[in-house]
Nucleic acid binder design. Structure first.
Length: 479
RNA sequence: CCGGGUGUAGCGGAGCUGGUACCGCGCGUGGUUUGGGACCACGAGAUCGCACGUUCGAAUCGUGUCACUCGGACCA
């Protein structure tokens, strides 16, 4: 074994440079590739497979909760986009426009959707007439375009893949219940599928969605203690309905405006997975969305019977419904070990001549590196149990990171000092005044992440101005 | 969008007091290997991000532009 040989595929240590580590992982794990246009990325098969797995699980949940998938066009006429004032103001700065059809200039320029509220509203205007038409529970899987000034793989693409749910309800109560239901779908998904603990909360007025009355969110903490918004769920009241003249006849034969919601998660969650679970050897994927859950690596595969034994194990695991790959390429076993570690495959299975003799194989966990020798009898169940245990381990580790780095502060000074020394999330009481929020950003460098739904009473006064406070807010540096 | 850095073969780098390019890894073929990124031999591959300019001559100097990157501003 050659010592000190430079490893071409080396990944920068996260302690040394977290941002570099992140992009190294994205590239070396073959999740993503750059293109010649800033902010537009190629999702390579391995990265796209992660998204497909996420999509499949979420889509199943959406359908279970009564939603239907639709597809709306990607171009929005300028006049349509401008119907809701707050909404335009929020999105106009980052819209990309189509101005020509062939060589002819268009009479009205068309915006490439940054989000589809306006198109949904136009459509709902046409199809909602009676309370019998409600609720409308639609979801769309698509990509949207936002001309961001700075971009990073997964965290900020100019074009990104997402789903956007858009629903219409007869009453405010029903719409709010929908908003909260979907927030919980997201929270459960993050925790039970991605092994990412979340804080459920409400955005402050300053941070809420353009045009929304209320924005709920799930906030996650990354390994570098910065915050990442995992998903959002908005309650619009009847603001858009009024702007787009969407009305229905209620049971009492009176005209009424329906109440609306929208909610979404994007490929940004993949960035969250990377920064929550990854380590200095590369990606660490949560088992429930890993494109490959088990990689089978034959050892001494040139020897008689080894490949056949490996193929048999591979077939068994595949038959058992596991996502499994066998690598019988002529790379050395050591090379393969490093390769699949970098790609975050949860379990490596080694099977060589000695194992075959003993009716066993070697299982190695990606998260802990722990190695175990297990019998080939009942291997399917052993592996399924191990995958669950890896999920739990990842969750516990991320939860510890969140808990250890969330702390209460009584004053702005304290937030300033703690943020400078240890980062993470500070929770403080807040009076509700935007001026205090701005001051917190200016002086402590943190923005309000959310007003957690699970409130604690830390004191009676706002940490910034000292006036009476009623809400507890989580503050942090966000991606 | 503002300020700093970078751009040479698939990847990482050297060359940058001007004379059309070098190294390691990777890649191809053959052989030997195979329980933590194996080894030997031979071979293929880049008009130096792009454009314009200075020059007899530009990877090298100048201007512009695009992309990446680090801060900052902005960002459902």
């Amino acid at each position: 074994m050659a010592e000190n040989k430079k490893q071409v595929e080396q990944i920068t240590d996260m302690e040394q440079d977290f941002a570099k580590w992140f992009t190294d992982v994205c590239k070396k794990a073959e999740l993503i590739d750059y293109t010649s246009v800033k902010g537009l990325f190629i999702m390579r098969p391995y990265g796209y497979a992660v998204w497909e797995n996420m999509q499949h699980i979420l889509d199943t949940e959406f359908k279970k909760t009564g939603h239907e998938n639709v597809y709306l066009p990607m171009l929005i006429p300028e006049s349509l986009l401008q119907k809701e004032k707050d909404h335009v103001q929020g999105f106009a700065p980052e819209c990309a426009w189509v101005t020509h059809g062939g060589t002819d200039e268009l009479e009205e320029r068309l915006c490439i959707r940054p989000t589809s509220e306006t198109l949904f509203c136009e459509h709902y205007h046409n199809i909602i007439h009676s309370y019998r038409d409600l609720p409308k529970l639609y979801n769309q899987w698509c990509s949207v375009l936002r001309w961001e000034k700075t971009s990073r793989p997964f965290l900020r693409h100019r074009e990104f893949l997402w789903q956007e749910g858009h629903t219409m309800h007869a009453t405010a109560e029903e719409a709010i219940a929908e908003t909260e239901r979907m927030l919980n779908v997201y929270a459960d998904f993050c925790e039970n599928v991605l092994a990412m603990p979340v804080t459920r909360g409400l955005k402050t007025d300053k941070e809420k969605f353009a045009g929304a009355e209320r924005t709920y969110c799930v906030e996650c903490m990354m390994h570098d203690k910065k915050a990442l918004q995992g998903g959002t769920s908005h309650y619009f009241g009847d603001g858009f309905a009024k702007a787009f003249d969407i009305t229905f006849t209620d049971k009492d034969n009176k005209q009424a405006y329906p109440h609306q919601t929208s909610w979404g998660v994007s490929t940004r969650l993949i960035g969250g997975i990377i920064m929550t679970h990854g380590d200095n050897n590369g990606l660490v994927l949560p088992p429930r969305i890993a494109p490959i859950q088990v990689v089978v690596i034959p050892v001494a595969q040139h020897k008689d019977g080894v490949l056949d034994a490996n193929r048999a194990v591979f077939a068994r695991l595949q038959e058992a419904g596991l996502r499994v790959k066998m690598d019988d390429s002529d790379n050395s076993p050591g090379w393969k070990f490093a390769e699949y570690e970098m790609k975050g495959v949860p379990i490596r299975l080694e099977l060589g001549p000695k194992d075959i003799e003993n009716n066993q194989c070697v299982l190695v966990r990606r998260d802990s590196g722990e190695k175990s020798f297990v019998s080939l009898d009942g291997l399917e169940d052993t592996i399924k149990t191990l995958l669950d245990s890896i999920h739990d381990g990842l969750y516990a580790k991320a939860k510890k990171n969140l808990d250890d780095n969330t702390y209460a502060c009584a004053t702005l000074e304290e937030v300033k000092e703690k943020m400078a020394t240890r980062g993470g999330f500070a929770k403080t009481m807040w009076c509700g005044d935007e001026a205090c929020e701005i001051r917190m950003k200016e002086e402590a460098g943190v923005s309000s992440r959310c007003i957690p739904l699970h409130q604690e009473h830390l004191g009676d006064v706002c940490a910034v101005c000292g006036k009476p406070a009623t809400k507890m807010v989580d503050w942090g540096v966000a991606y």
